[in-house]
Amino acid sequence: MLLAVENLVKEYKRRWRTTFRLEASFSVERPEIIGVMGPNGSGKTTLFELITGSNTPSAGRVVCAGQDIHRVKTGERDRLAIHYHQSYQVRRFRRYKPDFLLEPARSEYPLVHLFDEPQFNTQDGYIGFMLDFFRRLRGEGRVVFVCLHPNESYHLDILREVCERFIFVERGRIALHAGWNALVADARVAGYLRTT
């Protein structure tokens, strides 16, 4: 098992009222490229932050290569999962417990790569190199998440070309689809794609 997201819940509260709630539960058994889509504010980036351990869940856990990532030393979490924002990488962790109380990472290099809205434009040819990079990572036995806002029609081509599975996030709920056809058959996804 490469990645298991077990009954993960994140709640944002303002005083006693819950303003946002994200629930997720899924697992990834083998290396693959997973496309992530969803409207703004649906919880995509929060989900990524929870998986990399830079945001603390309200309940549930994220198990990456057999280790609960939230119990791993903050400086070593990037040996399990990495979050890429548009064109750079960030490692920013809040420390609730001192590092010496946490366990070391058992992996030497990251196994889960999360790409948050990589900048795809067709003017330069970098898309091709990025897609090859995703495939290379998968070939090396890693899991790749690609989160994309399909602003342009070729963004959908990219997702269809490169991804094996899809996650659709809407209002903090997650739907997993086994392939492109299953994804577009979902009425909510169809509705979302019409609006973009």
């Binding site: 750079y88 990488q89 003017q123 040819g125 091709g128 190199f129 990025m130």
Partner: peptide, 25 residues
């Protein structure tokens, strides 16, 4: 990209990429 080497090769190898073909380049 992203502080990593995401591809390398001779110009001919890189140019063979279908997305490079599609681009302005």
């Amino acid at each position: 990209h992203w502080g990593q080497v995401i591809a390398q090769g001779s110009p001919a190898e890189l140019r063979a990429n279908p997305w490079v073909q599609r681009s302005n380049l």
